[in-house]
Nucleic acid binder design. Structure first.
Lengths: 204, 204, 204, 204
DNA sequence: CATGAATGAGACTTCATTCAT
DNA sequence: TATGAATGAAGTCTCATTCAT
């Protein structure tokens, strides 16, 4: 039988790998389990990936490509910075609760020591991108006078921090029984405080 | 009594374990390396700890006890909420750059999946404690009218998020060459934005 | 399929295990030696058996199945009890000198403390079966008046005891130089004494 | 402190060793447990015994000396062989249920492969002694005409077999739930059958 | 004498990776 | 191509034995 490898074989493996790595981390994941989840032999994994580390890294890269759709919201093009920032934070909060996205921060943080490449990738493709966007918006707000003259670089981290805390809370602490966080509410409250904090004029 | 174990043997092991676990994570750490670092035999580890998992968990507990000294700053007793919050954030920022403290978030996040107990411990002893403190301060500010009527629970996360982002940045992204973050500056900027965001009255 | 496992691989392992366990007992047997005897890697053992204990127990079960062929002699169907008993003892004596059978009593007795399951299996499959058979025969003899009114349960043990002593003698004491026992002669003499002892009528 | 070793230290160790070895066998017994049972340090064992094997063998020797008191019953001096044999079997049955004696057969049989010396000792001091005695009694009976002209060597094994089966039953099979055997009843029934089987004249 | 402590050697078990079919 | 099977290389843990006090 010359079984043709189905064209989605690679994705099937990546999907299975995501589930396993997300659940157990790199070291505790066994290729047996990944293969079983796909329904193929362990050896077949090696037809698509060089080794376990390769599979892991490519899975992360794949998630970064897949789940960071093209760019961030377009419809904000000409909106005022405060609306842009608000939308961005809410968008991030919504994105970060999607299962395909939510597992990444914890995984990347945990394995960054042994896999600098995935930290790099996550930094370049996800973190940096969103932080840059925030910086730009803030800078624009500072420029047009709607925001106080803050350092956009630092202020962006003030904005992003709550989102990071939110996801990690959901993936790290909720599983052990910590009281759940409502990401949307968190985002809303955060936006409320942050925008007022950045705002230049007299708040009402 | 013979071959008297130095009284700090246990700490020596914990210190060595901290270094190894911090560098490689739980699974990739070999007890051989820990023992070698202490200068004892591998078997001697088992005189102090039940097994690898036990050593790991006790190390984390030990760090939580050691590095979260007693309580948080006392000198803020009667200060106004805004000063308390400011001091707390600055204190946290300073604490989180100490090497003995800095490695914990990344490690705990990474291993939380396989070691719920350390996530629990970190949550109870570190995260929850500081978040609670923040909540209390914010609630007091809301009560005395110096803060707007925000939800302290959510607002505390707005405050703490930046700190978390800051440490993780230093432990996860700086090692791969991301541009460094100045924690003190971050804290200062964050406090500036946040306090203004929370503040009730007319900003100046 | 590749590197096709020979269909008798499992038996090859069991055979090797039998040799090792029989010679050294459970604890002193190393899986290395078993594997080496089969000519495979130690890891290959784990493809067939869960662990050392599993291999050990399955080996015993296997021997019980293999070496206790179906049932005991058929040809005695309608014979008088005394002939049946005589034949049974002689059969047992012959069986117990076969190497594949002879090692079991000593091994089971020795490991019964740590492996109740093999004691159970040996009891159910071997000991109990032959003792029951003896009891039935004796009971029949008592019923038809050819045997005295003895307690079949106890009498069966009188009958079987000599066989047990015989095997253990061969496996425990002959190896250290005790004078050998001729199992057939022992069986013959035993039958002679026992039958006369059970017999009801006037012996001649 | 120059602690004087109590004069019974050796026996205390032997007693503890007996309990442990009897329960778990040689390999599975840990010197830690033996020492703990005595209430001394593991190292102290080495002040009295060369090593684990030495302790084991000496324990067996010690039991053989202790529990096989001098000789067998004296009061039978001039009794007729049938009474002597009867008494001997009953005596043996009673002896073999004493805990200090009962554990030996199973232990010796199990470890005989790795410790020929204890098989030797048990053979010389226990088995051979009682079998010889039986042989002598039987030979005397044959000589005086009260027994049929049987081979004393083989007949003795017919006599002794039931006793062996009885003890092993108690130590090997009763622990797993097999129905218990009443050693006295077994001995009585056995004597009954055997004596009649050996007897020369007309039974009554 | 006694001992707490230390250790070296070894055994089991796991698993990523390779190979023959 | 796909795979079942095989394995080598670890790594954890145990324990009899030794040693310094």
């Amino acid at each position: 039988m010359a079984r043709r490898t189905p064209p989605d074989r690679r994705e099937a493996i990546l999907t299975a790998a995501r589930a396993e790595f997300a659940a157990k981390g790199y070291a505790a994941t066994r290729l047996d389990d990944v293969a079983a989840r796909v329904g193929i032999s362990k050896a077949a994994l090696y037809l698509q990936f060089a080794d376990k580390a390769g599979l892991f890294c490519e899975m992360v890269e794949w998630m970064l490509e897949t789940s960071l759709p093209g760019a961030l919201p377009r419809e904000l093009a000409g909106a005022p910075p405060r609306d842009q920032l608000s939308a961005l934070v809410r968008f991030g909060a919504r994105k970060l609760v999607e299962p395909d996205v939510a597992f990444l921060p914890r995984l990347v943080i945990g394995e960054s020591g042994n896999f600098p490449e995935i930290a790099q990738a996550y930094h370049d493709r996800a973190i940096r991108r969103i932080l840059s966007l925030m910086e730009q918006i803030i800078a624009r707000g500072v420029a047009d006078g709607s925001f106080r003259p803050v350092d956009p670089h630092l202020a962006a981290r003030s904005v992003g921090g709550a989102l990071l805390l939110g996801t990690l809370w959901k993936t790290v602490f909720e599983p052990i029984g910590a009281d759940p966080v409502d990401m949307d509410a968190l985002a809303a409250a955060h936006v409320d405080v942050i925008l007022r904090g950045l705002s230049n004029g007299g708040e009402r």
